[in-house]
């Protein structure tokens, strides 16, 4: 991944910055230029609450090459308490916690690194609470 491509996503991956539609209030994560609910084009920035719940989940046994050293790992669709949905890994879970409805909090973690001269990509993972 190029440095600019990585850098463009710091506000979301590092700071959970969402865009709130001025017209209808829908919270978009990541931000967009037009609201898919009301077609509004004005937004304010909001730091999204870091808590949410698991809507569905899986354990990836055969990961992409960048994630080979992490396999197997758990992934979930999480609905954030502010409304947006995300897909992310689930970390530090115990037996019985990878379930639909489980409450989670996003934590800042390393996602994958690209080797000796590549970028180390950071972002969020969900941890059961």
């Amino acid at each position: 991944m190029s440095s600019p491509r990585s850098w463009r996503h710091y506000p979301q991956r590092y700071r959970y910055e969402a865009a709130v539609c001025t017209k209808c209030g829908k919270v978009h994560f990541p931000p967009r230029l037009i609201c898919d609910a009301c077609k509004g084009r004005e937004f304010t920035t909001k730091t999204m609450a870091r808590t949410g719940k698991i809507l569905t989940h899986t354990i990836v046994r055969v990961g992409p090459s960048n994630f080979a050293d992490q396999s197997p790992f758990a992934v979930a669709v999480v609905e954030m308490d502010d409304g947006p949905r995300i897909t992310c890994q689930v970390a530090d879970w115990n037996q019985g916690q990878l379930t639909i409805g489980q409450k989670v909090r996003l934590e800042f973690r390393k996602i994958y690194d690209e080797g000796a001269s590549g970028i180390i990509n950071y972002g969020y993972k969900a941890v059961p609470i």
Binding site: H57, T58, P64, F67, G123
Partner: peptide
């Protein structure tokens, strides 16, 4: 940017559909 970046694969996405 918002799915594959986090390691999810195509079988993984359809697996989540199956779980739901």
């Amino acid at each position: 940017e918002w799915e594959a970046f986090n390691g999810i694969t195509f079988p993984g996405l359809y697996a989540m559909m199956a779980v739901a």
